[in-house]
Nucleic acid binder design. Structure first.
Lengths: 341, 341
DNA sequence: CTGAAAGCGCTTACAG
DNA sequence: CTGAAAGCGCTTACAG
């Protein structure tokens, strides 16, 4: 059909060689007037680079892999927004992406590994996986929260203790004392959250027992259904609770329905804080006070990864990683505490 | 660092030529015992193809472009889930993707155009854009709802009239007669929805006037804020309304808050139907009855595009496109109508 | 400062 | 059925 315009066409049109056109396209040395002529040819011919040819010759793909643990809840708005955030941030850096959903328990190794300059992993990957990467590839790998056990890998830790403590302090200062936590225990991240809650409460002299927690163990259903049922169970065993802290927005989304069905009004009858600070927490009414990243995490993550690609001294970069801080984004759901009459 | 394993290494290891290895990798002719030997070498060496070299030689990129109108609400859960749905479906067909957010009013043309086998567009693109594609590229283009004015382009129409009519019929059968519509008028898709509502109501003898609609013109704020304010306005001018039909889940998300603030309970005091059938509609409590695709749209779209890439007779494919049907997914928000006492 | 040439890792006719 | 060779569109030393 249409003839593809290549760098040769541009060179011919501008009366120069392909090498020089390549230099101009990549911002290398060239005399101003020749550069000008080449740029004019580029736009007259509507030339655009063939990124595949570029990648194959320069052995730089300009592509970052995004590898997602298939076993996690990949269809939640939270993870979807995380992934699209990565894609958009990469595109600001002129990097493309390849996404692969992969079950770390499976035999096959992801195809994308041989076609990327770096890797972002989301979820829980085991040591077997890291061994494969370490032994067969030389690109850097990055993630957050969980540590990465390889030399060319780095993880941005999350200061979960500070984040949960801020939420607990906010509730205590509002006058709450009967505070409950509702969240999962199915992975290390969720366990970190629970432990942070227990230690924050202890810090201010509140013992946490099983009565003010819902662990969501051995329950099935969607996350919001789990949140719904768990909230009902919790209110039964702890009727005097005045504030709920949910381990994720998805749980809270269901939990809100449980409160409504009991005709409890937020925040008049009960206050709510969630975790994730997602679109839902911000946009539902009443707005839900939520724990989220103080500084958007993804740009930090992407910038670090891209630095690692170019930087030979990765240890220096790794030593200068600062943990991601969490903050509470206060909304109507904690505008005031229940008025005890 | 690590030496990259290429097709040459495999050939040497198996004691054959690169051409034959290439044949085996692509499922072409080869004697069984040589094929066996090559496959063993591939797995022993952990060889994976370099997709860039493959693309540059075969002039097939195995990559589909996803071009998104930058002016639309790209950060809503609805559009995010649409995009990730496309990505996952493409990956089932062994296609990669390149996403670009692009303002159709901008001068520059999208970079991805020269590096894809086909294009999916999301949003409202003007004739100028289609002229550029038609004149400079030969890959097929696909979208849904809006028509595409080029030969190698196809669009899956959406039977919006049927969809909205089903919702209206559902409400009328429940005994509602005071039904209001709340939605935008900022683009043709939203206007199609409003017109479908008016004609569905007329069909059953209900005149629709300005009092039972909220157009969301000249309003600012997030979609959910617009939905919140619009719901308050509507209830003021139409206090006897018993059912609300929202043009999108984002509007409904805010609208639910407005209803709660007026202590209206769903569905006891007022019934609600939304449009999009998103994660939120399904997972919030009470679940919101929502209009969505009868058959998931994205697989249909992707399959058609991939057929168009291989098929020389595109007109035949275009003539056999069936419009996407909508359906209502009934949930608690329309479990029963308000009981008039 | 610029051009001619080698070569990245593949695929694809074309011989043998 | 299999191998040797040309070539996809680029980049990158290397001469001039």
């Amino acid at each position: 059909m249409k003839k593809k315009i290549t760098i040769r066409d541009v060179a011919r049109h501008a009366g120069t060689s392909v090498g020089t056109v390549s230099n101009v396209l990549n911002g290398l040395r060239c005399s101003p007037k020749l550069r000008e002529r080449i740029n004019r040819s580029v736009s007259e011919l509507k030339y655009t680079q063939n990124m595949y040819a570029k990648a194959v010759r320069s052995s730089r793909t300009n592509c970052i892999g995004i590898l997602i643990d298939k076993r996690s809840e990949t269809n939640t708005p939270w993870i979807q927004s995380l992934v699209l955030d990565i894609i958009q941030t990469l595109s600001n850096y002129k990097y493309r992406n390849m996404i692969e959903y992969w079950d770390p328990c499976s035999q096959f190794q992801p195809q994308l590994l041989s076609n990327v300059d770096g890797l972002i992993i989301i979820g829980n990957f085991n040591d077997d996986f890291f061994h494969i990467v370490e032994n067969n590839y030389s690109f850097p790998v990055i993630t957050y929260w969980n540590a990465i056990p390889i030399k060319r890998g780095a993880s941005v830790p999350v200061n979960i203790n500070n984040g949960i403590r801020k939420a607990v302090e906010h509730l205590l200062l509002l006058g709450h004392s009967k505070i409950a936590y509702l969240g999962g225990t199915n992975n290390s991240v969720n366990c970190d959250k629970i432990n942070a809650f227990i230690s924050a409460m202890k810090r201010y002299g509140h013992e946490v027992d099983e009565n003010c927690m819902e662990h969501f163990e051995n329950v099935s259903g969607s996350l919001s259904e789990i949140g719904y049922q768990g909230t009902l169970r919790l209110l039964k065993k702890m009727p005097d609770v005045t504030a709920l802290l949910y381990g994720s927005d998805c749980y809270a989304m269901g939990g809100m329905g449980a409160l409504a069905s009991l005709r409890l009004k937020i925040p008049d009858d009960i206050s709510v804080i969630s975790f994730d600070n997602s679109y839902w927490a911000e946009n539902t009414r009443p707005g839900i006070t939520s724990i989220g990243f103080q500084i958007p995490l993804i740009p930090v993550l992407v910038e670090l990864l891209i630095k690692m690609i170019d930087e030979p001294d990765i240890d220096n970069l790794k030593n200068n990683i600062v943990p991601a801080e969490l903050d509470i984004f206060i909304r109507q759901s904690t505008e005031h505490a229940k008025q005890l009459t």
